[in-house]
Design a protein around this nucleic acid. Structure first.
Lengths: 248, 248
DNA sequence: CTTTCCGTTTGATCTGCATCAATGCCGATA
DNA sequence: TATCGGCATTGATGCAGATCAAACGGAAAG
């Protein structure tokens, strides 16, 4: 392996900077070397399925670039998205053999994978990893519960505003931008994907976006480029008491 | 401390058998003694609030007997239940100071608590605990995602059937009963609580329960005592492909 | 330049659940 | 035994969002 890459990895996990740094920030150098030896990269094209629900899943991974989704499907085809994976997010669960959800690349996607068995072995030897993974999982659980409030009790308009707020915030975090006042970003999802996330139909999503545009809450350039005039106004529309919660 | 109680705890955690055994099954005797020294019990009456969202929470705990709920509330009063805590379930998160949800006792409730600081210290010294907690949290996350499908995509009738199936299964597990064919149990929730869990109104809950009764899927004795004739039929009504999923 | 295709928008109508409003059923209290 | 108060049921009506259907726009292919 390339000298430079290894060096970078030992300091900040190189190519998968954010989440891996988070996973191993507290590890010793030799533990990082061990992690280094079991990692590998996989690329997927937009639209490609990474894993089907029920498949054997012999790795865990974190997203390096691109966006993936977790979805559940009923026999009759009704679909509900249950997670949105942005760069730095973790997929897969140690101690489980089969995948519980469909994982799909919605944009071109690069993931950094660890074969599951060695990763589990390492977890046992390196307590920091389990502790860090626990923190991350608890955050995801909070996000899922926030989403339950949205699915169970919010109106279509509030749902759309909430989703836009979440994407704006995640985007700002990744870009290390602040969003004082407003925000500008590209929608990473189609109307149908948004509908699957929000428990709506794509027609309702389209109508509510048009309504938010008409009411001056957002501006659109093309179909995907969104400008949020006032973040405060958007959060108000979202019906959020505080800051709009987090995302899985 | 009483000799008998300590002995029991060291073997199977005595008074809080199920979850504590799960947490410490792999621990050494002296670690268990340490856990023993930081635990204490608290009782609540039906309807009492255990913790308000936003309060400082200086303990983690597991339910010994009774039932508690986790709920989120919007400013205008809309409520969504995001978790149902049955005996053996764990509450609270290490590494967080304030509670994220209202925790309420729906029946008389006994919890076994651990002061947070000592518990966190122990977690660092005892890797098994973090690993076990990770497993438990991942299970809860799966349950939350199953619930997202219910909230986002199921009809009122399917929601009710799903809830009944989940309660029947949890009840059977706790009683160590099998439910070949049918099941009988007490509903631990009012119609309003069911509505808050399912993202419905209490009137709709009532109507759909009546409908399931009329259609012979369940039988009612009084308002709470439920008899499920055929578990298969109930799961079919729930729209579940496999087994109805799990619960937080 | 034209055609095709896919995602999107917009319109018309339908319907499942919410909302508003009584009434019924106990168990508790006097 | 009468009365009250908290759940639960049932009915009548309204509306947000689903469904069905058509047309639009822009990128890619011929």
């Amino acid at each position: 392996m390339a000298q430079g890459e290894t060096g970078a990895f030992l300091q900040d996990c190189g190519d998968c900077p954010i989440r891996h740094r988070a996973v191993c920030a507290r590890c010793e150098a030799d533990e990082l070397t061990a992690l280094e030896q079991i990692k590998y990269y996989r690329s997927y094209q937009a639209g490609q399925t990474v894993i089907w629900s029920g498949d054997k899943m012999d790795f865990v991974a974190s997203v390096v670039t691109g966006i993936a989704t977790l979805t559940q499907t009923m026999e009759d085809g009704r679909r509900q998205m249950v997670g949105l994976l942005l760069p730095s997010d973790f997929v897969g669960r140690p101690g489980r053999v089969t995948a519980a959800y469909d994982v799909t690349a919605t944009t071109d996607l690069v993931m950094c994978c660890f074969r599951k068995k060695p990763f589990e072995d390492m977890m046992i030897k390196t307590p920091h990893i389990a502790q860090r993974l626990l923190e991350m999982t608890l955050d995801e659980l909070d996000a899922a519960r926030e989403w339950m409030l949205l699915l169970g009790r919010k109106t279509a308009r509030e749902k759309i505003a909430s989703l836009l707020a979440i994407i704006a915030r995640r985007d700002a975090t990744l870009q290390l931008k602040t969003m004082q006042g407003g925000a500008v970003f590209e929608l990473p999802l189609t109307r149908e994907e948004m509908a699957d996330y929000l428990g709506l139909t794509l027609e309702t999503v389209s109508r509510q976006i048009s309504a938010l545009k008409r009411d001056g809450v957002i501006a659109l350039e093309g179909k995907r480029h969104v400008t949020v005039t006032s973040m405060d106004r958007l959060l108000e529309e979202a019906g959020d008491d505080s800051d709009g919660g987090m995302l899985a």
